[in-house]
Design a protein around this nucleic acid. Structure first.
Lengths: 130, 130
DNA sequence: TAACACTGTGTAATAATATAACATAATTAA
DNA sequence: TTAATTATGTTATATTATTACACAGTGTTA
């Protein structure tokens, strides 16, 4: 078992908000939404986001500068993320595919690099937008 | 054969600069460097960068907001990029691995999404930094 | 050749994303 | 109970990227 992280007030507020959305949220839109809860400054948001990313509760969609909750209840995949992103409606879905994950986990380059993390983003058109 | 793109003056200046570096460059560092060539504003840089990305001459390292030249002379892989990034020295290398590329190209999710592009970034420690 | 579409340019302003620096408080570990 | 660590609140600022506008060059096409 992993150490159970205890979240602080700010971290909880922000995680709650992100978990209620099934789509990624941007930092300043989060800030706008949590102002009524007493979080006033960007830095307070970014600090919480960074922590939540670190412990795997949320992931950053790098190409969109946005944050989405990890749906995997185990939350042990902070370091191995795969997303599909629709370039039309911007719908983002986390992908869980054992075969692909294995391949990525086992990947070795020829430079002797030691990997501990990867992020993969697929882009295209979802069923609705095709 | 693909249509041979003709680059404009600004695009050439900026591509030259990026190709001379074996590491990713950031937009504002590029701007600083090309001021002596008469490129004065961020937008001039971003416009050239966007075009160069589009035609596959350079790639954006999303997690770093930086741009690196594509070393593949065919430049047909604008839509399928794999990088390894050392989290200590920030060294970035483009990875060409046929087997992995095939897997990614052939990947199908169960949502009927139509992919036309992907970007994969591996993070870890390079040989020097281990 | 004129009208048009398309792409690129130059400039100014501003939006959006993210961090530095500082003082202080709460929590945990020794 | 001191020290170390982590989080907070606030102000200011750095970094990354786009909007808006006027105009110039190129290549259709009619």
């Amino acid at each position: 078992m992993q150490k159970q992280e205890t979240l602080t007030k700010n971290q909880k507020i922000i995680l709650d908000l992100i978990e209620k959305s099934d789509q990624p949220l941007k930092a300043y839109s989060i800030l706008f939404d949590v102002k009524k809860k007493g979080i006033n400054a960007p830095l307070q948001v970014y600090r919480a986001l960074n922590k939540l990313v670190k412990i795997g509760k949320i992931h950053k969609i790098e190409s969109r500068n946005a944050f989405i909750a990890c749906k995997n209840s185990k939350c042990q995949i902070a370091n191995a993320t795969i997303f599909s992103i629709c370039e039309s409606c911007e719908d983002v879905t986390e992908i869980h595919d054992n075969k692909l994950s294995e391949h990525l986990r086992d990947f070795k380059d020829n430079k002797g690099m030691k990997y501990n993390k990867y992020n993969l983003e697929f882009f295209g058109l979802c069923k609705k937008c095709v």
